[in-house]
Amino acid sequence: MIARAPAADDLGGVDYLGPEFLTWLWWRAEVDPCFRHDDGTEVFIHFDEHLEFRGERAAARRTVLRAGMPGASMEARAALRSGKSLVAARILMARDEDEMRFTLRAENMGISGLKLPAPEGETREDRLLACLDAQDQFVEDLDLCLATFLRVRCTEAWDAELERVRAWGESPSPDERMQPALSS
């Protein structure tokens, strides 16, 4: 545990809050990918084809995993076990029949490559408004994930949650389970 620096910038001196959120979200997507709005609308999260880790202790190096299903790889679990946290990830977010893919950069919550669902509408203006609605929905869903994280992270429940994340990190990844001979 390292005491945080005084709030002096846009990150409030807690540049680790975003990476912690994204790392938690990765775990949560693996064990319980469903998030629910107050009105019962469900949002599903799946981590896609790009994971980028950054180390905090020892050598602060980055590990970038790109091809295939990096979330299932032994390298991803190894990065987590060694104390690295996720700083960027390609995510698939689904609500009803709509799917949106995007890359979340955790430190500043920058969104890149967001692909909105194909908009419906007869005119260009109609389709533009449909895209704006989809973008609003996307932001609401992402905020739901962050709010869910904060309601655990800022309470005493965090210690137990962290133990679950660590236990998951220490367990064999799907790739390791598929290749017991290689991992032993």
């Binding site: 005491a3 809050l17 690295k84 992270r153 220490e170």
Partner: peptide
């Protein structure tokens, strides 16, 4: 808030 270490901090890993 204080920083979380998602890996277990051991003498060796640190």
């Amino acid at each position: 808030l204080r920083r979380t270490d998602f890996g277990r901090v051991t003498a060796t890993s640190a």
